[in-house]
């Protein structure tokens, strides 16, 4: 937990929100500001070493993590991520370095070659956790000026937010977004596939498998009567929003449903305008949905 009065964090955006998924970065910054949370971007951060890198070189992936953590340690604050992949790999580096002195020594040696060191003092957080557990219900409700009345939302957490360790939420049935939707005045629908895998990179590397996994999630949300799906990870977001046409065509079932980031949903309920909500970036008819619901 932060010890100071103002909520101030080191912010680690991650590669995927600098390109295709800028809307997530934009809406994170604007909602943080609206909630009085200060996010200070980590200077000259590098790739976190996520799954695809970890699959080829473990130690090098941990070095990538450790450089970010070492940079952050100077400021002595928790580091906030918004991508599930970054979140899980950066926390993992902390845990594995602490558990394995040999690994830790190797990583320290590598850091030293670049004139850095890391003492294990940076706690890695997810922005969703900060909003729900640090900012909390009262402040979110107070800030909500346009309650999402009549809106049914399917919260899609993806796989890596509550797993492997279930530190911030239940590994099988996470609740953070469910709560948040309620605070924003909407209704969260029971969503059995909320923590199932979207297929990650499979959508590109094995499209049939990717479409199958993502299609099930989209269909489940529709079957549960949701008006839209919210996500907390750029890769989940792309998989769920960008391939609905093909999935619907190939599976013969209608899988069209608006998909947006939980931060965009918050920004809307907070009454923020463009460009702070970044709804213009959505590939699905999110704006039309809000208009139809009179929000």
């Amino acid at each position: 937990m932060n010890t100071t009065n103002t909520m101030k964090f080191t912010y680690y955006p991650g590669c995927s929100v600098t390109g295709m998924n800028k809307a997530y970065d934009v809406s994170t910054r604007s909602t943080a500001k609206a909630l009085g949370v200060v996010l200070e971007e980590l200077d000259d951060w590098n790739c976190c070493g996520a799954s695809a890198y970890m699959s080829v070189h473990e130690k090098r992936a941990f070095v990538l993590c450790a450089r970010n953590l070492a940079l952050a340690e100077k400021d002595n604050r928790d580091m906030v991520t918004i991508c599930n992949g970054c979140y899980v790999v950066l926390s993992k580096a902390n845990k594995y370095m602490a558990a394995n002195p040999e690994l830790n020594a190797d990583i320290q040696k590598a850091l030293a070659a670049g004139g850095m060191s890391y003492n294990g003092g940076v706690r890695v957080r997810h922005f969703l956790d900060v909003v729900v557990n640090d900012v909390g219900e009262e402040a979110v409700r107070r800030r909500t000026s346009k309650p999402l009345a009549g809106l049914s939302v399917a919260p899609y957490y993806g796989c890596q937010i509550g797993r492997p360790s279930g530190e911030i939420d239940d590994a099988e049935d996470p609740q953070m977004m469910d709560k948040l939707i309620g605070w924003l005045g909407g209704r969260s629908v029971p969503f059995p596939l909320k923590a199932k895998c979207c297929g990650g990179m499979m959508m590109t590397t094995r499209p049939k498998i990717g479409r199958d996994l993502t299609g099930k999630i989209l269909k489940c949300a529709k079957d549960q009567g949701a008006d839209c799906i919210i996500t907390a990870c750029p890769l989940c977001q792309i998989n769920l929003e960008a391939f609905q046409d093909t999935i619907s065509r190939k599976s013969g079932t209608d899988c069209q449903i608006p998909v947006l980031y939980f931060t965009q949903l918050m920004a809307t309920a907070f009454g923020l305008d463009e460009p702070a909500v970044a709804l213009k970036d959505c590939l699905t008819p999110v704006e039309a949905m809000f208009a139809q619901k009179g929000i």
């Binding site: 390109g19 295709m20 990538l64 030293a112 670049g114």
Partner: peptide, 25 residues
């Protein structure tokens, strides 16, 4: 939707990072 970024960003500490990676190897 202006969602394609054609210009890769190179971090300014890239040399420094490369030295670390080489040391890890």
């Amino acid at each position: 939707r202006h969602r394609v970024d054609f210009f890769p960003h190179r971090i300014s500490g890239i040399e420094n990072l490369r030295r670390m990676i080489a040391a890890a190897q």
